[in-house]
Amino acid sequence: MAKTDYSKCVKCGLCWSICPTEAISWTPGEYPKIDPNTCMGCGACYERCPNYAITMERLPEPKIVRVDVSKVDFKKVEEICRNAGFHPEQIICFCTGTRAKEVAAAIILGAKTPEEISRMTGVRTGCKVECIQPILRLLRAVGIEPKPKPGRHAWYGICPTVFEIPKKVREKYRARGFYFDEDEMLLKKLTRGEAKV
């Protein structure tokens, strides 16, 4: 987990603004405080603190964070995943190995923001980069479109998918080697029930 060396800290709040689990509390002019129970050791603060004020320390025992998918209605899980364009079994976070079904289960159990999902499942606590779109798409599948908290830039918003690329764009770039139609068919085959569960 992360530890702050206050002799180096300049109270800029950057660590607070990027922590994926909101483990850091901070108000302007104050030192940041890290909640050891919420910190997942992702290293975002350690890797971006401009003053190298944060170090990572090994926990005496590993912390396991997981939502038990068997505790929720799997039909609902499947529905959320399919509506978001994912197969329930597919991996959405390569660092933690978290699958779409676990994020869907976290949403069924009440998670409404990427941060709540990270705290429940551990996603986004590895590279901090690659899994934000699946999270936002899975939330959107149940009608939740969260807004980032003012001042924080842990994430901004959802980006386009292949499903929404207009016909004229597909035609314009096809000759260059962008095979959108075929890729879309492949993703649909995976997510719209043709692949095994």
Binding site: Q133, V162, Y179
Partner: peptide, 23 residues
């Protein structure tokens, strides 16, 4: 690019269309 864009590259566009994000 920001993390949202990179995530879209690897999850949203598909295995042959991914680099269209950059274009």
């Amino acid at each position: 690019a920001r993390l949202e864009t990179r995530s879209a590259y690897h999850h949203n566009l598909g295995p042959r269309g991914a680099n269209f994000v950059a274009r």
